[in-house]
Amino acid sequence: MIECEALTKTYTVREKPSFFSRGVERKIAALREVSFSISAGEMVGLLGPNGAGKTTLLKILSTLLVPDSGRAAIEGVDVLRFPRMVRQKIGLVLPSERSLYWKLTAQENLQLFGGLYNLPSRKARERSEFLLKTVGLSEFSHVPVEKFSTGMRKRLMIARALLHEPRLLILDEPSSGLDVQGKREIWSLLKDLATQQGVTLLLATHDMEEAETVPERLLIIHQGKIRAYGSPSEIKALSGNHGWLFIDLPGTYSENRVKLPKGLFLDSIQSVDGGSRLCIRISSSYDLPQLLRIFPDATRVERREVSLADAFLTITGERFEDTDTVEEEEI
């Protein structure tokens, strides 16, 4: 369904331009030789912090952006050579809710975009009615979009992206700006679309809960490079991090006093809660009975599973927060 080979994109920005000077030109590498492939019917999440290159990648796949080098194809159709054909194959959901005509009604928005996807007027109307029902907006079909809540607009954007019955839906942060209830509604809708209609989903997100809930597989992108690819559990396993043990002990302990047998645990140990608790990062060979022999006076042992954010941290070596991607070079 999607094939990418060595996609590279660098932006040129000017710093401090003025009337007398064009400013300092900087190159910002957004994607660095990104290669991957996605099969038809898959639900794939593109996970990375802000500035990781997610939107750049989605824009290239949806023909909004031309890469510097590399190749991308949707169902075998090259995005650079046949952009119009590619646009007919994909549905795009942008992050901004302003990407709808707010003064028009939901039905008018869908009818307009139906025309842009070359649907005959009657078919556009029928698809609009069907999709408004699918996304739960049929009662509001004649209400201007400006009166909609953020969640309703997001659902309408998904309906718009499905008008021409694309086999691939590309979504850039589809649940951004929504409350918990709104997010869950969108996630449930996306899962239904993928399972019931066989639509392939490529969803960019920096929301860990979204990444664990919707996609079957994840592409971890960081600083313009794909760092890992697999199911959320595979990503967690790939990180080599198998979780933590919290051991409550009578009295206070310093992590320096505790010697752990090599190979049994990973070497990370930390005393917390003023020394009354030890936190140990465990490996796959962790053995609870042996652990209890080392800490015979332990009053409580609690195991905490590794989260996707922990795995991301281990794989990329960075905290999961906004980071600037990129190396800069002055010209």
């Binding site: 909004l64 119009r84 975009f113």
Partner: peptide, 12 residues
């Protein structure tokens, strides 16, 4: 209006 990318993503 904020819709230009939506328009450019269509075959029009």
């Amino acid at each position: 209006e904020g819709v230009i990318e939506s328009l450019l993503a269509t075959p029009a």
